[in-house]
Structures are given as C-alpha cells and as structure tokens.
Amino acid sequence: MDPLVSVALRLLVWVFAMLLVAGVAIIGPRQLYDVPKDLIRHLRDARSYVAALLLVLVASAVGRGPLQSVSELVGLQLTGFIYAVEGEFVAWLQTFAVPELTLYFSWVYVYGYVFLLAFPFLAYAALPSSTMLKRLILAYTLNYAIGLLVYTLVFAHGPRNVMPELVTSLLYTFDPHIQSLTGEVNEPTNVFPSLHTSLSVTAAVFAVLTRDRYRAWTPIAGVLAASVVVSTMYLGIHWLLDVIGGIVLAFGCVYLSYRVVDADGESDDRHRL
C-alpha cells in the first residue's frame, strides 16, 4: 500500500475510535445518537461559517504552493532572527528525550491533535443551540486564514532544519511515512506561527468555556492541548516563538469568534464576515 494511504488510514481508524469512545463517555450515548438528526439543522444554521471554513481550507490546499513561492521571494527571512532570539531552547528541551516520551509526543502530534480538533465538532453539534458550533468553526477558520497570511509574510525553517546536530527530527525519524502525510498539508517553511499550537489551544479554550456542559472534556482537552504544544517543540518542528505566536493567535481567534457570534447565535451585523 502507498505509504501515504496507509498513514491516512491509520489516522482515520485512530480518530474514529477515539471519537466513538469519547462521544459515548462525555456526550452520552443518547445525545450522540441524536447528533445526526440535529446535524442538518445545525449546518443550515451555520452554513455561512461552514462555507467560510471550506473556502479557507480549499484556498490553503490550492494556494499553499504558489504562496510558498511568493514567501521565498519576498517573505521576511526570519530563521536567523528567531535563532538569535531564543537560541537553543528547543535543543535543551530535546535533552529530556527518551523513547517513551518520543512515542507519546509523536502519537499526540498526529492522532491526539486531530482528535482534539474533531471532538468539539461532535460535542457542540450535540447541543440544542448552534452558537458554540458557529463560534468553533469561525475560530478555526480565522486560525487558518491568519496562519496562511503570516506564513506567506514570514519565511523561516524550524529548529530541526537549522541545528541538526542538536535537534533531531524525532517525528520523522520515528516514522518517516508521517512526513508524506504532513507534506500533503504543510510546507516545511510554514513554522511561524505554529498552527498545531493555535488550533489546539483554541479547542482547549473552548473546552474551558463550555466546562459547565462537558465537565470531563475540559481536563482532557487541556492535557491534550498542552501535550500538542510541547510536542511541536519536543519533536523539533517548531520554535518557542512559533508556539508563543500560536497561543496569541488562538486567544485572538476565540475572542473574535465571541465578538462576531453573540449568545443568541446571531452574528452581529457590524461584524458579519
């Protein structure tokens, strides 16, 4: 089997299994069973947000290559600057590397991350109101859109590409085929900000904001998000500055999503996208 297909298949199986278990345990079997019924109504309600998300995802898939060339030509070359600011922090982090941790963080970076992002869709689709679902989709969309823009403006390589004698590409050394998957959705020079960080933190912030409804999800999301954030650096993929940028982006996007979608689920006209 083609390595890409096998990696993608493994990802699908993992995430589906986790969604099922978490869905039953956290959302509840009854509510989970009802999700498909309400889904049509929710999606119709949130159609402009869904459309915006799809648009950004397509733009990212199609435009990533060309924008990468633009970034190469006119983007700010910041690798040297980032290194000058934070030095060998990531290398220091990797001094704690042990096989068990590498296994855990590799797992979190790929499977845990996708689960962390996917579960809120399910959880908020099980709520009677589509407000949270709209906010979630909008926040994800903003993360992607702003991330894509900054990727174009900034041209930088991650630590594993800059100090190979100190920082090992732990993820790709652990399983080289994963790179065929990440290569499909990302460019190695898209490091600032870390979208892994920003999307994970976004999901975790939402988990905190909805802790009254999904009490068990909040600590899980918190631990997962923290693990993803550490994994991006532990695996040598991102700089500390990328992670800080990602956290700032996450809070900004959540804030904006609450500004645009008010408590009644209506988007304020002044902020309509």
């Binding site: 390595p3 790709y172 080289p176 790179q179 065929s180």
Partner: peptide
C-alpha cells in the same frame, strides 16, 4: 519528491 533523506531511504526500504 519526499520530505527528507530519511523518508527517501524508507521508500526504498519499503
């Protein structure tokens, strides 16, 4: 085209 030298070797190995 693959992402890294390690991935290239893995393709050959597999």
């Amino acid at each position: 085209v693959v992402g890294s030298d390690v991935a290239a070797v893995q393709l050959v190995g597999d």
